[in-house]
């Protein structure tokens, strides 16, 4: 009965949402702000990838908030699972030798790929978040692959904090130079080059490190909590 009622209610909401979107023509060019972003991104911010320029420069405050959310999730997770540190050996079964050798071989390549992605954030698709996550998956493979592997939490949290501070300091520098918070103060350089688009690469590299360290920390905390039997 409950399932029926739920289905009916959701049908009701679905109908209303559909009517809401009926008026939106799919695929038509109805950009207002989008046009201005596309036109001003290369000349004003020097970044080739408009999405990255929006994410880091135009709406940099969102990304600052975004990084904080991730940071708070990692801290919150650590706080919630604080008392549940498990013994190392109950992490998981003995990994097969293929997995171990595969993990050892793959890890550097994955980290390289991740680094490439967040360094070229303003040129090719991708950026801090994507690169950081890829590095985190690299660490995940290591955790799964090597039995005795333990992410060095101290190092991770230092990296995380330093990256976070660089982001905020980049913002404060904007203020120090008499401009606004998070405003670009470095020369734009020629678009398409790695060293172009002012502070965008710096911020995105910092975000990359931060996300990578954070998610690795999160994964390791999750892996090492007790099975809950004791």
């Amino acid at each position: 009965m409950k399932k029926l009622l739920a289905a009916f209610l959701l049908g009701f909401i679905g109908y209303y949402l559909y009517t809401a979107f009926a008026g939106v023509p799919f695929g038509e060019n109805k950009m207002e702000v989008g046009k201005d972003y596309l036109e001003t991104t290369v000349p004003k911010t020097g970044a080739v990838n408009t999405v990255t320029s929006i994410v880091v420069n135009y709406r940099g405050f969102d990304t600052l908030g975004e990084v904080t959310v991730l940071f708070l999730a990692a801290t919150g997770l650590g706080a919630i699972l604080f008392g549940m540190k498990g013994k190392p050996e109950d992490k998981h079964r003995e990994p097969s030798s293929i997995l171990t050798t595969g993990a050892k071989a793959l890890f550097p390549i994955i980290v390289l790929l991740g680094a490439y992605i967040f360094i070229h954030g303003h040129l090719t698709p991708g950026g801090g978040f994507q690169g950081g996550t890829i590095i985190a998956t690299g660490v995940l493979i290591l955790i799964l692959g090597i039995k005795s592997f333990h992410a060095n939490h101290a190092l991770l949290s230092v990296m995380e904090s330093l990256a976070g501070i660089t982001f905020v300091v980049a913002g404060i520098l904007g203020l120090a130079f008499g401009k606004n918070f998070l405003e670009n103060i470095l020369p734009l350089g020629t678009p398409g080059q790695v060293l172009s688009a002012g502070i965008i690469p710096i911020i995105y590299i910092a975000v990359g490190f931060k996300v990578g360290a954070e998610l690795a920390g999160v994964l390791d905390t999750l892996m090492s909590t007790t099975r809950g039997e004791e």
Binding site: V33, D36, Y58, D62
Partner: peptide, 11 residues
């Protein structure tokens, strides 16, 4: 204005 962009563009 954050990051120096006028309101419709920036925050």
């Amino acid at each position: 204005q954050i990051a120096g962009w006028a309101p419709p563009l920036g925050i």
